[in-house]
Write a protein that binds this DNA or RNA. Structure first.
Lengths: 132, 132
DNA sequence: ATATATAGGTACCCTATGGATAGTGATGAC
DNA sequence: GTCATCACTATCCATAGGGTACCTATATAT
């Protein structure tokens, strides 16, 4: 009952040259997921985002935020004070996406145990092969 | 009304060592998106998948399918005939995920024009900077 | 006066991944 | 005989992800 075929407007993410394909490429990043989820509740500063996303390096954080800003999902506001203060917030488009990405995140958290087991089984099978 | 904080089971995708974080990493791939979406309507053969996903190389297709199989999202069935015949289908877990990923795909297709415009604006601004 | 901390980055490098190309084995079609 | 099908596998290369160090400017601490 939905979008297994081509969308009504002729956009088709399966086609390499379709704009929607490049959108999918942009979304296919764990830092994009997490950044959008992190900003879902409201505006945050660079440092707050960095602390929230364990393991992200300043470079990757900046890079991710620049991409999200470029694509109109995030708004960046600079306060000309010292020390510098920069805040990020989702645009309406970003809010819209955040709902979906949060669902993915919830799904990942809910099904993590199952997938962990599946991986364990897979590597057990692999070891068995090595023995036989 | 949902998962902005830690999930009830203590899983938190923002933590690098959390299993759900690695699940998110696995999902963060355009080929994973597209493969799961492609299999949504039913089982397909390797060649059918390759033809459906424009631009995927045999290596990436195999790699993606192996990951999905390892994580219990896809079932692989080999028919010992010549020429070889291999079919892939979503498991229940995979079906479950496919609903969400299809929504992302629809979102990408619906909002592609907006994002295209945002990108155009961004590069126009960039050019302006270069001139001034 | 000097050193440190904060804040939000940039510059540089290095490895891992994505992606392109070519090859494999067994068969049937032309 | 040679070409195509089918589902891969192997090899190579370019790019992207990721780590570390450094930058500006000020307030605070010593």
């Amino acid at each position: 009952m939905d979008s297994d075929d081509v969308s009504p407007l002729g956009y088709d993410a399966f086609r390499r040259t379709c704009p929607s394909h490049t959108v999918l490429e942009m979304l296919a990043s764990k830092w994009v997921y997490l950044t959008v989820c992190a900003l879902r509740r409201g505006r945050l500063r660079n440092g707050e985002l960095a602390r929230k996303m364990e393991g992200i390096t300043p470079k990757m954080l900046t890079q991710t935020l620049r991409v999200l800003e470029r694509d109109g999902l995030v708004r960046r506001e600079v306060f000309p004070v010292i020390p510098p203060r920069v805040e990020y917030e989702l645009t309406e488009l970003g809010q819209n996406l955040a709902g979906l990405l949060s669902q993915i995140r919830s799904w990942a958290e809910e099904h993590a145990p199952e997938i962990k087991e599946a991986r364990a089984r897979a590597s057990a099978d692999h070891d068995e092969m090595a023995v036989s």
